[in-house]
Design a protein around this nucleic acid. Sequence first.
DNA 1: CATTTTTAAACGGTATACCGTTATACAAGG
DNA 2: CCTTGTATAACGGTATACCGTTTAAAAATG
Lengths: 213, 213
Amino acid sequence: MRRPTTLADSAAAQLRQEILDQVRPSGALLAEAAVARELQISRVPVREALFALERDGLVEFSGTGRAHVKTLRPEDFQELFVLRLALEPLGAKLAVPAIRRDPSRLESILAATHKATSLRELTRGDLDFHEAVMEASGHARLVRLWRSLRAELELWLAGLQQQLERRTKRTREATVADHQKLLRCFCEESPVAAERLMRQHVASWGACLPAPM
Amino acid sequence: MRRPTTLADSAAAQLRQEILDQVRPSGALLAEAAVARELQISRVPVREALFALERDGLVEFSGTGRAHVKTLRPEDFQELFVLRLALEPLGAKLAVPAIRRDPSRLESILAATHKATSLRELTRGDLDFHEAVMEASGHARLVRLWRSLRAELELWLAGLQQQLERRTKRTREATVADHQKLLRCFCEESPVAAERLMRQHVASWGACLPAPM
DNA sequence: CATTTTTAAACGGTATACCGTTATACAAGG
DNA sequence: CCTTGTATAACGGTATACCGTTTAAAAATG
């Protein structure tokens, strides 16, 4: 069933990884020809990959059409936070029926999060949980919005890596505990209750980040 | 200050117009070569325009990479409605300070709406008002989200044209009255009140549409 | 040494060409 | 008449080439 993934797609994936790994640091120029040489492909798929990454919020184009790795400012984080606060409780409310029908996906993500040792794994487990909730909402556009928020969020978190590294263990326990509470709420309480709890969860997440806002 | 607009941009604008005018009806194939011939340009900028229109929600790609004018179903409208209900009250709440500082833009849009004679002008005035509110929120991502919602909304409304045409006058009066109330609320009451009133406004808009949901 | 001018390299926008895949219309067979 | 096979046209993905613009470095000037 897998379609032979296009060069543009794999180029986008590769660049996304390099950006989030900070191999391509904030503000770095992504020149079509140079990237094409490095990836051993022509400029055309590179160009498309850059557009896709712009849509994801990882790349921005200057007035003269040059692509740079986006530099997130504190007010960008603020915007992302406000949007999470608006969209995730909505997603949680809508997701309750589907999760009740089959909570296994959330459970397995939760188990993986519990076993996370590195900050990278923890972040991944955290965001995967939230993404699974959004997917369970059955709201296609909401999922797309979330994915775009997620990419920018990961970019932001990548910049905070050092400051977060030491607190991995405590953060992990808090995250797992919070997510467990959410999961129980999804299965046992009303959609409105799920909505409210998700709002609190996102709010406390935003409050405990070492973000210079 | 104007950049010599790129061929891809003008191609996107042209196609957008033709889609909303239903010159390119729902489901129509947008073949790169054919469009390129019609617009007298090469396939490359057409290709980029199609990607841009996909981002706007006016075009969707089949599994084999073919671009078609998107066909909106009632559940798509539902999704759009739910998102408006989540995002527009938020935008209204954030916009209150900026609108109080300078309500002139909203006022002039309102005046134009009041003079609208065709359904097209009325719809434009309605959506322009909402877009101006979102812009006043100062939330760049919220504005981008709204623009994408707006495009799909216009596509949906284009499909209902006949059913709405007769009610233009009454709709216009209701719209103008509602928007006047909103504007007054922005200038005189609290952000939370503005948020609530916007929620009601969007909700009643969704309720009075002849949408087969 | 600071500032301006010149120049060469880099870059993006676009056109064209090639190839394998997909769709489609038509013909053969049931 | 419907199904199935096949040929052909259409289409998308990609590579390469050209050109004007932007950028950045070097050179000239004060």
